[in-house]
Simulated assay, not measured.
Amino acid sequence: MQGGRGSGRGSSGSVRLWGRHAVEAALKNPERRHRKLWATREGVASLDGELPDDFPVEWAQPADLARLVARDAPHQGLVLDCDPLEDIFLEDVLDGDASRPVLVLDQVTDPHNVGAILRSAAAFNACAIVTQDRHAPPESGTLAKSASGALEVVPWVRVVNLARALEDIAEAGYWRIGLDGAAKSTLQGALPAGPVALVLGAEGDGMRHNIVQHCDAIAKLPISEAMESLNVSNAAAISLYAVATRVIDASEGG
């Protein structure tokens, strides 16, 4: 099985994160190797917990930090330089727990959307997100800020071949549901009792034909005709909620 992060890293191999939630989560993540923290004293004071005495910190003014991040990025007095997270492979996350869906993203490339999807995945206890390596954004400060700390807690599997990954997901016992606004069935009607993988495509283009062919069912969210479609991150959040409430209803006999 092929997987791994494999691309999207800068020439120095580092990732620069900013903002309290993203930096705090990275500092608490034992899987992160931290290189250096640029910070204001107020920024460090806002963190939950204290930094080790030997942690590499360079004190700076807000204007100095602004020059280290994307234009107008809300750094909140914290900028962290760290190594990318280690590779995570598909077989490491497919545990078959029906309450923990897999989220598969087909060519969703906007870092704000992927970050927001990671945040929803963390909120609704998804076991992982899966993307194709060449058609997904790299780890970045923009993505991590949108994820609000979820980048550090939700496994992100990057694969070479998304269709092959969907085959592996099916072999692990997951029912693969592709989300498409033109589908006849609603998501609620398509949800199985067992493990589920939700597949979402890029806004506008949707899922590619080959990815649709690797789904067990195609379903839609029952939105009003007054709106043509939802942002992909909103659709992901609603779909994950539908899976979470399905599990609760089953456990309560509803």
Rank of each mutant, 00 (worst) to 15 (best):
1 M>S: 14
1 M>T: 11
3 G>N: 04
10 G>W: 05
16 R>T: 15
24 E>T: 06
26 A>N: 00
26 A>S: 15
31 E>S: 14
33 R>D: 04
34 H>W: 08
36 K>A: 13
36 K>G: 06
36 K>P: 04
36 K>E: 12
37 L>R: 03
40 T>H: 00
40 T>A: 00
46 S>D: 06
51 L>N: 05
55 F>C: 08
57 V>F: 10
60 A>G: 11
69 V>L: 08
70 A>M: 13
72 D>W: 13
73 A>M: 10
79 V>S: 06
91 E>I: 07
91 E>D: 15
93 V>R: 02
93 V>Q: 00
94 L>Q: 01
98 A>M: 02
100 R>A: 13
101 P>E: 04
102 V>R: 00
104 V>H: 01
104 V>M: 04
111 P>S: 12
114 V>F: 05
115 G>Y: 02
116 A>Y: 00
118 L>N: 03
118 L>I: 03
120 S>H: 03
121 A>C: 15
127 C>R: 10
129 I>A: 04
132 Q>P: 10
136 A>D: 05
141 G>T: 04
142 T>Q: 05
143 L>E: 07
151 L>C: 10
153 V>A: 06
156 W>V: 15
158 R>F: 07
163 A>L: 05
163 A>K: 14
169 I>P: 01
171 E>G: 13
171 E>N: 14
172 A>R: 01
173 G>Y: 07
175 W>Y: 13
177 I>L: 10
178 G>K: 02
181 G>K: 12
182 A>G: 13
184 K>Y: 11
184 K>C: 08
184 K>E: 15
191 L>E: 02
195 P>H: 01
196 V>E: 02
200 L>F: 00
201 G>K: 00
201 G>W: 01
206 G>D: 02
215 C>I: 06
216 D>F: 07
218 I>A: 11
220 K>H: 06
220 K>E: 03
226 A>Q: 12
227 M>R: 14
228 E>M: 03
229 S>I: 04
231 N>M: 08
233 S>M: 09
233 S>Y: 03
235 A>P: 03
235 A>T: 05
239 S>R: 03
241 Y>E: 09
244 A>Q: 14
246 R>M: 09
246 R>T: 14
247 V>Q: 10
248 I>Y: 10
254 G>P: 01
254 G>L: 15
